[in-house]
């Protein structure tokens, strides 16, 4: 990778100040950014590490919600939400592998919005709120297409707040090489509403499968989805799966999620 000036602020305010220049790039766990920089697909002049900011770490209750600092590692989330939000714990505990989970963070994953990442599905499926250094953004407004988000230049995800559904589950079908989701579905049941978020499948990144949500609201059973389908045309098609195959997986994973919860 190209060399850069390395700074490691200890507060959000200092990090935001350090990110003022055009050529500065924030890095949290770096599990995606470091390989990207090695491939010279990213070459910041200043790299602002977010790993020493204590105020961005931890998991705690925040009223009805769970507050998770943006700098909290997947391993910590998996451990500390095991009781309070098992579906989220399970999602976090299956990202990458144990070593990746020791470093990678929820804030980094959400800010990056990789179309095959797990956390965007968890956040969108839960109806989470993304907290930044300057505002709060509803997950529905945050994810704006592959690697695109509502974040402004230099804006940092400092925390994510999750409402806790009555029941939820994350069904993941892995891409056999990268072990990212080929298609994964997060289904959350809030009693009166159902949210279904799909990652890995669409060329627009994570999305809510609203037809399925509507069908499941009336009849929370795998059968409710059997007559539905997502359009193969909007799906990613690559070496590992055609659009039609990802469309199939979207449906099957949704059905299996519902069957496991029903």
């Amino acid at each position: 990778m190209q060399n850069f000036e390395f700074v490691r602020p200890t507060s959000v305010a200092d990090a935001v100040a350090a990110l003022k220049g055009d050529e500065a790039q924030p890095m949290s766990g770096g599990q995606t950014l470091m390989p990207t920089m090695k491939a010279r697909l990213a070459a910041p002049e200043i790299l602002v590490s977010l790993t020493a900011i204590d105020e961005m770490k931890g998991v705690r209750k925040d009223g009805d919600q769970i507050w998770i600092g943006g700098g909290t590692t997947h391993a910590t989330v998996a451990r500390e939400t095991a009781e309070s939000y098992p579906a989220l714990s399970s999602l976090a505990g299956r990202i990458g592998d144990p070593s990746v989970r020791s470093r990678g963070t929820i804030g980094g994953s959400i800010a990056n919005n990789d179309p095959s990442a797990c956390y965007p599905a968890g956040a969108l499926g839960s109806g989470a709120t993304i907290v930044t250094d300057r505002r709060e953004i509803a997950a529905d407004d945050f994810f704006q297409g592959m690697f695109m988000s509502a974040l402004d230049e230099g804006e940092i995800v400092t925390a994510v707040k999750f409402p806790v559904p009555q029941k939820a589950i994350y069904q993941k079908f892995i891409q056999p090489a990268s072990r990212f989701p080929l298609t994964a579905v997060f289904v959350a049941h809030f009693g009166d509403t159902v949210r279904v978020a799909v990652t890995g499948a669409s060329s627009d990144g994570v999305f809510r499968w609203t037809e399925a949500e509507e069908a499941l609201q009336g009849n929370f059973s795998a059968d409710a989805v059997s007559g539905l389908s997502v359009s193969a045309a909007m799906m990613i098609s690559d070496l590992h799966g055609s659009g039609a195959y990802r469309a199939q997986l979207t449906k099957v994973m949704t059905q299996r999620a519902v069957a496991a919860l029903a």
Binding site: P176, A177, S178, R179, D238, L239, H240
Partner: peptide, 13 residues
């Protein structure tokens, strides 16, 4: 080459 790393070349685990 579209399977040019372990991201796309599937090694048995």
């Amino acid at each position: 080459l579209i399977s040019a790393s372990y991201m796309d070349y599937a090694m048995p685990r």
